[in-house]
Computed example of a mutant assay.
Amino acid sequence: MRFHTRKWVKPEDLNPNSTLFGGRLLAWIDEELALYSIIQLENPKIVTKHMSEINFRSSAKQGDIVEIGIDVVKFGKSSLTLTCQVRNMMTREIIITIDSITMVSLGTDGKPKPHGKTQIEYVQDRLTDY
C-alpha cells in the first residue's frame, strides 16, 4: 500500500460524537482517488464509477492525523481499479478499508475513453534528462 496524503482532523471534520465524520473521510478518499487516477491515466476527466463495501474499523478524533493509502488492483480498457486503506497515524489503527474502487477515464463527450495504460507509472518514469 502506498500512502500519499495526510489529513489533520479539525473541529469542522467531527460528527456529534466528536469523532471523524465518515462522510468527510469518504470525500477525502474520493478526492485522493481522483487525483491519483488523473495522474496515472493522464486525463483530467475522471469519475468514480463504483466503490465496494466500505468497512469502518475505527475512528479518529480532533488533532489526529490520518493517512490515505492506495494501491492499483488492475487497469481496464477505460478504467482503473484501486484499493484503499486509511490509517490513524496517532493510534496506528486502520480506520477504513475499501477493497475495490473503479475510476473511469472519460472523453470530451462524457463517455468512457480508452486510456492505453497497463501499469503504474512513477514520476521518475515520466521525467527526461535535460
Rank of each mutant, 00 (worst) to 15 (best):
M1K: 08
H4S: 11
H4N: 11
K10V: 13
D13F: 14
D13M: 12
D13C: 12
N17A: 13
S18K: 15
T19I: 15
L20M: 11
R24T: 04
R24Q: 08
R24G: 00
A27P: 00
W28F: 10
I29T: 07
D30W: 04
D30V: 07
L33I: 07
I38D: 01
L41V: 08
P44L: 02
I46G: 00
V47N: 01
K49A: 14
H50W: 10
H50E: 13
S52N: 11
E53Y: 07
E53L: 12
N55C: 13
R57S: 14
R57K: 15
S59T: 15
A60D: 05
K61T: 13
Q62Y: 04
I65S: 12
I65D: 04
V66H: 01
V66Y: 00
V66L: 10
I68E: 02
G69R: 02
I70R: 01
V72N: 04
V73E: 05
K74H: 12
G76E: 06
K77W: 03
S78R: 05
S79Q: 04
L80D: 06
T81L: 08
T83R: 06
T83S: 11
C84H: 03
Q85Y: 03
Q85H: 05
M90E: 10
M90C: 09
R92Q: 15
R92Y: 12
I96S: 09
T97R: 09
I98N: 04
D99F: 08
S100T: 14
T102L: 02
T102I: 12
V104T: 07
S105W: 01
S105H: 04
L106S: 03
L106C: 05
G107M: 03
G107Y: 00
T108K: 10
T108N: 10
T108F: 02
D109L: 01
P112L: 02
P112Q: 06
K113E: 13
P114N: 08
P114W: 02
H115L: 09
D125A: 07
R126I: 09
R126T: 09
L127N: 00
T128R: 12
Y130C: 10
Y130N: 13
Y130R: 13
